[in-house]
């Protein structure tokens, strides 16, 4: 089992606040890895560091053996490492199909390609993926008019359209109504299994992440607290204390 992402001793501070303190973890290829921790524990900061949103203070981040801690966001995205946002982000004034088309990966795009049309196979693929997340009947609608849950699904479909090697999902079930969550988990699993996308997921919903992940890392106060299978994590004293102890705040 090879590690797709190797994070080694990564630290990141904002002013005097240490958001990540010497964090080391690995995301193995072809698996679903979870990242949990109370609010403010540094999960999103770690995601931002991995995708190049801000420079890290120290440490090393490798993606498929390549050091990426110096790369900026678009370059890392073109390597096949994508993320979705906690606050869903889509192109809200474009229709769903166009949202999908422009999300195609830009790895081998040349300048001249900017002036080319999309081949019909790509529209076909966009529609298939919209169907996969259950948005086929909404494909011609302006995406900003969709409900929040549907926008989350669209963002997920856009990520799949990019054919990433690894997808970082920041709270995929936040704000989605409970009946939809099962459908979403099913699709996340199928994306991992059928499309060969490795997933690294931040999630606050414990039943979801215990169900979905093969292994879980837990952060607290910017430090790595525990790592193990869902069963091990669930029975880990430190994790339970972190969630139920002094640092617990109401989930957003």
């Amino acid at each position: 089992m090879t590690a797709m992402i190797e994070v080694k001793d990564v630290s990141k501070a904002f002013g005097g606040i240490i958001a990540n303190d010497k964090i080391s973890l690995e995301v193995p290829e072809g698996r679903v890895t979870g990242l949990i921790g109370p609010n403010g524990s540094g999960k999103t900061t770690l995601f931002n560091s991995i995708v190049g949103y801000h420079p890290i203070d120290e440490g090393s981040i490798k993606f498929e053996g390549v050091e990426i801690s110096d790369f900026r966001v678009p370059k890392i995205a073109r390597l096949g490492l994508l993320r979705t946002f906690q606050q869903t982000r889509i192109y809200s004034k474009m229709n769903c199909v166009n949202n999908m088309l422009i999300s195609v990966n830009h790895r081998s795009e040349r300048f001249i390609d900017l002036f080319r049309d999309y081949p019909p196979e790509l529209t076909e693929k966009a529609e298939q993926l919209l169907d996969f997340v259950g948005l086929y009947s909404k494909r011609k609608l302006i995406s900003g008019d969709l409900s929040f849950g549907q926008q989350k699904l669209l963002e997920f479909a856009m990520a799949l359209m990019n054919e990433p090697r690894l997808l970082l999902l920041d709270e995929p079930t936040a704000g989605i109504n409970p009946t939809l969550i099962n459908g979403l988990i099913d699709r996340l699993r199928r994306a991992a299994a059928e499309m060969g996308v490795t997933l690294f997921v931040i999630e606050h919903n414990m039943p979801v992440i215990m169900n979905l992940a093969d292994s879980i890392y837990c952060l607290a106060n910017g430090r790595l607290l525990a790592h193990g299978s869902p069963d091990e994590i669930q029975s880990d004293e430190r994790v339970i204390n972190a969630y139920l102890g002094g640092h617990y705040t109401v989930d957003d």
Partner: peptide
């Protein structure tokens, strides 16, 4: 062609567009 969609993507959310490569 693609240019139009890329331009509109930048208009709607440039950070997202960068994040998508």
């Amino acid at each position: 062609g693609r240019f139009g969609l890329a331009a509109n993507a930048i208009r709607d959310d440039e950070e997202k567009a960068e994040g998508m490569g």
